[in-house]
Structure formats: C-alpha cells, structure tokens
Design a protein around this nucleic acid. Structure first.
Lengths: 330, 330
DNA sequence: AATAAGTGCGTAAACGTTTACTCAAATTAT
DNA sequence: ATAATTTGAGTAAACGTTTACGCACTTATT
C-alpha cells in the first residue's frame, strides 16, 4: 500500500534507479529532475523502506544499544550524547532495554542482531558469558560504555582508579582518616575492582592502612546504601563513606538520617556519578562528575572511525563538586 | 559474509524454502529434517536477516516507541510492561528518545517510520502538529500512553480527573481546606486540563470555592516545584499542595525545607505518579499510584488486537499510598 | 571538425526471506 | 488393489532498494 520509489518514478516519468540516486544523493543526476522528484516524494508522502535499503546495501548504519532496565539514570546522559552524535554522522540508534535475567537478555540480543547491526553498545551492563558468546558470534563491533567487561572488548569509561584517588584525597584533606566504600561486591564488573584498588591504593598513599571490612556492598541499589548503615551500626566505625553510585549514596544518606546520624556533622558522604539525583537530597550530595554526554558522543565516533574502534578509552576529566555532605574534621 | 538460509540449505541438502518453513515454524516439514536444520543453524551461527524478512512479509511486528529524553522516570515502568507483553506476543520494540525540539522530533520520527512499523506509541509525549502530520501520513497505528493528545488518537492513561478527586478527598478528610495544585500550566496536554478540572470539581463537591491563584506551574520539572514555594512566599496561603509529578513534589518538599517550612507539620504534600522517587526523600512522599506496567502491557495488547485499537482506555485503579508528607489539621 | 571527456539516465541483477503453487511419494480409505 | 488423501519438499516469484554497467547525448579540447 505504501508509496515506493517506483510510484514516484512512474509519476515523474523516469526510472526507479534515478529516483534512488536522487533520494540518496549518490551518483549522477540533474538538479532539475532532482527537484521534481523531491517534491513528488514529499507530496506523495514517501517513506523509505529501510529494510529494503538495508538488504540491498549489505552494510548498515544501525547501532544497537543495550541499556539496563534498572535505570541507572546517568544512562540518559550517555544516550543523549550518543544520539546527537549519531544523527550528526547519519547513524541510527536502536535502543533495547535488557533485564537482568539471562533468558531475556539472549532473546533481546538475538532480536537486535537480526537487524544487521554495525555495532552493539553495552551501556553500563554486565553481560554473562553465554550472551557474550552470542554477541561475538555475530559479525558486529562491540563496545562497552561506562563499564569494562574484559580485555577483548573495547570500552569507554571514566578512569575509575583515578576517581577514587580524587575522592580519597579530598576526604583526607578534610581530615578524614577512616573511610568506607559502598558498592557492588561482585568481583565481576572490572569497574568495581578498579574502584576498590584505587580506594586501597589512595589510602596507602596517605599512609592509612585500610580495613577490608570497610569495603562492602551487595549491589548497586538504594537498598545496599540503606543496609550499609545498618550493617555497621552505631557508632559508625568511620567518619566518611563513599557511595559507588548516586542511588547508593542516597541510601546511605537516608539510612544515616533514619538512624539519627546527622550528615555531614557525624558522617561525610561523597558520591560517584553526580547526576541530577544529587540535587534532590537535603543536604545536596558532594559528588564526582563524569562527562557522560561526551562518553556517548565518543562511543559513536569510535564506532564510525574504523581505525580507532579497537582501543579502549578512559576519561580522566573527573571533577569533584563540593556540596553539603562533607565536613572538615579537626 | 553472514550465514543465510541458503547456506544452511546447501549443507543440509535441501532447499532454502524448506529451511525457511522450518525456522519460522510455518507450513509442512518433517520433524526429522527440522531437527537437522535447527542444529545446523545453531552450529553455523545463523541469524535471521530481519530486514529481508520484513521486506518479504509486508506486515511487520515492530512497534516504535517515542520516549521523552527528559526522563520522567515512570516511563521505565511503562516500557517494562510493554516489553514483557511484546515478547509474549512476538512483537519487537523499537525505542527512540525524542528531544523537545521539533526538528529533532521530525528526524527521529522519520527514521522510525522508515522501518515499516505496525504502530507508534507515544509515551507521555506532547507532539506538535507538524510531527503529528508526519505520523499520520504514514500508514501506522498511533497510540498515546500516559497522555492524551486529541480525540483522533486513541490513548491509554489514568483517569486523571478521578485521581484528583481521590487526592482532594484524602486531604479534605485530613482537615485541609486550602489546597494548591502545582504542575504544567500549558493548556496543551489534555492531562493537565483534566487534572485541573478534577481538582476544581472536587473542591466544589466539598463546598470549597477554589482560588485560581492556587493552580500554578511552568512545566513538569523539579525547578517548578522549587519555584512554587518561592512564588507563594511565607506564610504559605494553603496548608496542602499537590505536585503533578514526583519530581515536582520533590521540588516542593525541598523548596519548603529550604524556606524553613517543616513538612508535614506546616505543609502537607501529595504527589501524583508514585514512582520509586517518592521513597528517596525524608519524609517519604504520600502519593497516588498508577499501574504503569499494566498500562504498558495494555498498550501492546491493544495494538495486537485489531478490534480494540481504536478506543481510548482510562485506568481507574488508582490508589493513594499514605506516607510521611500529610498531616491532620484539627 | 574531429575526438575526448563528461553528463543524465535506463537496464538488470542482487540482497535474504517468505509463500503460493506444484508434484512425487507415502499413507490411508474403500 | 485401487482410489483418495496427506505429507514433505522443491520452484519461482515477490518484497523495495541500490548499484555496476552501458548507452546516447552534450560539452570541452585540440
């Protein structure tokens, strides 16, 4: 029923090939006919059948994006960045939300891959080996953003190791000597390992021997933040705590408030991510910020740029934004 | 480069048509060859070329979803519902984030439409007439979820009018007589109109003459919530305020706290939406909850079900969840 | 004026899958 | 044992677009 280039060709009295050349702006054609064709296309309400186009040109300009459905809200920023770059370069984004369950993941991924994709971007996602195997068996570029999976797969993420140094330095300068790190305790995400290592090394640099008990957490959720305060009990054995994600830090803050601990006078909190969520609490969370939008843009540029696409990139422009949850200890 | 059904057919010593029949589970074939083919497909790492399939079967099972990039976080719930139903019924979701700017919208919509879509779902989006015209010119079903656009387009949303009654009744029962409603003041979204009307009518039902000044707001943002408190100044001329979205209500709460107004003793707040955001504040927000996941599921069922797809549906199962931001006035 | 280069456009094949039509072989019914 | 039905699978066309190739015609070069 839909209008095709053949319909346009008939009406214009030329061949479909010419219409195609004009509409894709490839090959040779006169500006005169081009004008007529473009007008006709508009009038007749023509929409390119992208499936047919994809089939014809073997390579596609579609980038699949896997986003965790447990919405870590910095994902929006990254997607925004990706989308703006994608439009600039003429790529198309195909966004799919994936559950944490394996089965759903495989189904989603397979359905994604059945569009011939140029690349698949995994956004802050930990993917299990069976899903990864499926992805690898397909002929697409893989890229992990805001997470590192393993050395095989190029990634774009912040320098998590350096980030921890920045935070620990800041807290140290404010007199803190006992600090805890709350986040996922899974060994899986390399990000978590890097953060832990950065945390420990930073403490060591300041001559503080770290207490393994002070690194804790089940997952990257609000509940983990709440539970952390309960777990350590009163009086808290540390004066400052670092939340590995904004939502965790809000859990920490509320857990502290619920336990009658006043923030920051009795507990300092620094959060990683620094999304708008940090603005919603009272006091406002002191946070490190990463340039998420830029990470998204780079992801697409990286995919577009054949030569670069095999490297991993770590962003080092991390800034700490002082706000209301850190106090100075004398 | 990729494996096609022809490759499988060759290896199995049968025709491509047979492979297609087996893999799509249509038509006639023996379980014996089927088994062999399915194994081969797996071994060889076959992925269906969905573009080719779409081209061949004229109708598609792809539903496009337009999501506002200014992430109203209940959208996640709705998407979750849509996705689960979509998988159940064998549909595919194509999610696109749209900017608020017109130009971006048109570009995104056009690129969406170039996949032959079965339907386009607009998620809590206000769309301008030019974009709407583009959508209508394409041969797709349209459905608006969690928003109503105009009578042309079927929609699935909560009964916003009844919701306001529920809230006003609740506040009235708790002794409140002066109430304000903060949300978008745009006349555009019909939702906003319905809420305002529901608010006014509910007040009238209780014999309260409403004050037009007490309905205010610029848009559905955190800032509007913050600004509302500043605008009315101290002492606030009302004892209770209704935030038209969770993020607005958090703005109201923080605005109040920043102004030294204690909640709920000096100001009661009830919020509409009731997402997890309500749990993040102290005190926790008293909220009405809508069944967002069910709305998403219904959206897909509705699209699947030819006969129903022209009706609008309003959800009436709205519950008010008491929490920490409403006090009783004596 | 003869040749070379460039321009505009048509022809036809290709992309991978689906499906209506066949038809032979196997199975069942009479 | 013959006729009727069912079963499994092959053939070929179709979906809408792109693109290599070729041809006629125009413009530039000597």
């Amino acid at each position: 029923m839909a209008i095709t280039i053949k319909d346009i060709a008939n009406k214009a009295g030329i061949s479909a090939a010419s219409v195609s050349r004009i509409l894709t702006n490839r090959g040779r054609f006169s500006e005169e006919t081009a004008h007529r064709v473009r007008e006709l296309a508009n009038e007749m309400g023509y929409f390119k059948n992208q499936s047919a186009a994809d089939l014809s040109q073997k390579s596609s300009r579609v980038v699949g994006v896997l986003v965790p459905i447990t919405h870590t809200n910095f994902a929006d920023e990254i997607i925004k960045g990706m989308q703006s770059k994608a439009y600039e370069l003429g790529y198309e984004l195909l966004i799919a939300f994936v559950e944490t369950t394996n089965q759903q993941q495989i189904k989603t991924v397979k359905s994604l891959l059945s569009r011939q994709l140029l690349a698949v971007v995994m956004l802050a996602i930990d993917i299990d080996d069976t899903v990864l195997a499926v992805l690898k068996s397909a002929d697409v570029k893989l890229l992990s953003v805001s997470n590192q999976l393993n050395n095989d797969i190029p990634s774009i993420s912040s320098d998590n190791y350096a980030m921890m140094h920045t935070i620990v330095d800041y807290l140290y300068d404010h007199g803190h000597r006992q600090m805890a790190l709350i986040g996922s305790s899974d060994p899986d995400p390399i990000v978590a390992i890097l953060r832990r290592r950065g945390f420990i090394d930073a403490l060591t640099d300041h001559g503080i021997s770290y207490n393994p008990d002070f690194i804790w957490g089940v997952d990257m959720t609000y509940q983990t933040g709440l539970d952390a305060i309960k777990k350590f009990g009163l009086p808290l054995p540390f004066t400052a705590v670092i939340g590995s994600a904004d939502i965790i830090s809000i859990g920490l803050l509320n857990g502290a408030l619920d336990a009658g601990i006043s923030v920051p006078s009795n507990l300092s909190i620094v959060t990683v991510d620094g999304t708008e969520l940090t603005q919603l609490t009272r006091p406002i969370l002191t946070a490190t910020q990463q340039n998420f939008a830029k990470m998204g843009e780079l992801a697409i540029s990286n995919i577009a740029n054949e030569s670069l696409s095999s490297h991993s990139v770590t962003f080092t422009d991390i800034t700490l934004i002082p706000a209301g949850t850190v106090t100075t200890i004398v």
